[in-house]
């Protein structure tokens, strides 16, 4: 199979690279927007009992209510780009990692339904059930996506698919990926929610989220440090690439993460948010750079797996259309949300 695919794929290496970059922009966007969204669920889960947790939960509700659906469409974008541009890589991943992907899919259902239903239900017992479904799956789903990323990055997905259904996502790199995903989500969300609380002039909630942002930032940093040693033992190639080609990105990530925490007390809420987003975007970008030019481990290259050129052209066009149509619309949504123009209730 790879022969035929390779022949026609290799005729358009630049195009294949372009589409893989466009795909990866989607991955970064999902890590940022989806991540902040999942993280809000994490803090919802840990906010405590009904009375104590009602303040943070209300802020979570108001902050992600209007934007959560749009945030998760980046996932759809990634999936469709992957299966159209690199079908062999897509099926290799789905036939190997069908367990974590299946759990993540169900987690997405529980999460979305739980959130939408909680918003609309009135009594505490109902809200508790829906809220628990939302919050628990907000932790489970990013963990599963993290293990999938770990499996792909450490080369545990064979080209022909049907790899080890358990070992592929239960190994040091995958577990690191899962934990890192959850802690990154929690960190992003707490920084964003601190800013929202400040915008709403709610000092108690601001303190509440700022303390958690510091904690999550420190934990994420520690997980990252531990990850360095772990990757050296478990995925030497990934470690090598990260510590060479990816090093500048990782340094930027660490620095901006650190500064974002230091700036949390400052008056303007914008800087910490931007820096936190930068920290996450650069670390995800580091993964992409380390992996290039392979889609899976070191055995399936971008050029080998690429679809015929016309398909790649169409996908490039689709991504450009996304830039022209979706980006301004998204900006409008976030601006309206940020200015408090979107609210379903008084």
């Amino acid at each position: 199979m790879s022969d035929t695919v390779g022949v026609m794929g290799s005729s358009v290496p630049v195009l294949g690279d372009t589409v893989s970059v466009l795909l990866f922009i989607g991955v970064i966007a999902y890590a940022l927007f989806g991540g902040a969204d999942f993280g809000a669920g994490f803090w919802d889960l840990t906010a405590g009992g009904a009375e104590r947790g009602s303040g943070p939960r209300r802020l979570v509700d108001a902050s992600i209510g209007p934007v959560w659906e749009a945030n998760h469409i980046w996932l759809i974008y990634c999936l469709v780009m992957l299966w159209s541009a690199f079908p062999a890589a897509f099926t290799a991943i789905t036939t190997t990692l069908y367990i974590p992907l299946g759990i993540a899919a169900l987690g997405i259902v529980l999460r979305g339904a739980g959130f939408a239903f909680r918003k609309t239900s009135m009594r505490t017992p109902e809200q508790r059930i829906y809220g628990a479904a939302f919050a628990l799956s907000s932790v489970l789903t990013p963990y599963c996506f993290g293990t999938v990323a770990g499996a792909v990055a450490s080369g545990r997905v064979p080209t022909e698919g049907r790899g080890d259904p358990l070992g592929s996502w239960n190994n040091p790199t995958s577990v690191l990926g899962g934990i890192l995903a959850v802690s990154v989500c929690a960190y992003l969300a707490s920084v964003f929610l601190t800013a929202s609380a400040r915008q709403n002039r709610s000092p108690r909630l601001e303190r509440w989220f700022r303390r958690r942002a510091l904690l999550a930032g420190v934990v994420t940093g520690l997980v990252g440090l531990a990850g360095i040693f772990l990757l050296r033992a478990d995925s030497p190639r990934l470690f090598h690439q990260l510590s060479h080609r990816g090093l500048p990105l990782l340094i930027i990530s660490a620095l901006s993460g650190l500064i974002s925490l230091l700036l949390l007390r400052r008056e303007t809420p914008h800087a910490p948010r931007v820096l936190a987003a930068l920290a996450v975007a650069t670390v995800v970008c580091g993964w992409g750079v380390a992996q290039y030019p392979y889609l899976l481990g070191t055995h399936l290259g971008i050029a080998e797996a690429a679809a015929p050129a016309p398909t790649l052209w169409v996908l490039t066009g689709v991504a450009c259309a996304a830039g022209l149509l979706v980006a301004p619309s998204l900006a409008l949504l976030y601006i309206l949300q940020n200015r408090g123009r979107l609210e379903s209730r008084t």
């Binding site: 469709v80 299966w83 996908l315 689709v318 996304a322 979107l342 209730r345």
Partner: peptide
């Protein structure tokens, strides 16, 4: 596969504006 990618763009726009509409009443 690519028609799904085109659908993704439309779905994006739909989700964005449906949110603006639903939350924009007041």
């Amino acid at each position: 596969g690519f028609p799904f990618a085109i659908e993704g763009i439309f779905f994006f726009l739909e989700a964005i504006f449906v949110s603006i509409y639903i939350y924009g009443w007041k």
